[in-house]
Amino acid sequence: MSRATLLVLADGRFPAGGHAHSGGAEAAVAAGRIKDAAGLEAFCRGRLHTSGLVAAALAATAALGVDPLLLDDAADARTPSAALRTVARKLGRQMMRAARSTWPSPELDALAAVRPKGAHQPVVLGLAARSAGLGPEDAAHVAVYEAVSGPATAVVRLLSLDPFDATRVLARLAPELDRVAADAVAAARRVPDHGVDALPAASAPLLDIGAEAHAGWAVRLFAS
């Protein structure tokens, strides 16, 4: 694997649509659950161990070369909120465009052909990593990092939080990110023998409820 290639894929400026999404942080801020850096850290930790873990496991499995359509169904089954399924496919479509343009491959083309409106983002992310010559560990790390960096950036804008405080939150979470990514890869490696039921299905009901409410707001800074 190329460490520099991993940085290209993980860069927050990778043009795959993430900038318009808060990862549920906007709804959590409005509900009073994030008020400061401590609230941001608690939110990120919760997201990391639930939807972050699931996304990382899906991405790692896709990077291993498991059928992305099976994983797309598995992602649907693990995303109870219709609003979040829509967001995941929208971001998956944007990731697909960026990936095909950056690291073209027949596998990406094949998935784009059968899911023209987008497969779940973590599945496309894993396949993008594979097309870039990266492995499941890399894909899982990008997924867990996205799970926390999106909300951190959004909260800087939503609360005018000191950006250094937000970055310290991410740095403190780093060892935990490594552990969750390792768990995700371990689950991914069980899929070839045990099927997609070996993948984690941790859920975060408040993220689901918040996303459903947020989708109905008339005025909002972020798309989700």
């Binding site: 900038h19 999404h21 465009r97």
Partner: peptide, 20 residues
């Protein structure tokens, strides 16, 4: 198209949502 508090990003740096 929703732009996540950054209108210039959606038309210049990350144009994916607009292209779609």
């Amino acid at each position: 198209v929703e732009t996540g508090a950054c209108p210039h990003t959606a038309i210049r740096d990350d144009i994916s949502a607009n292209l779609e």
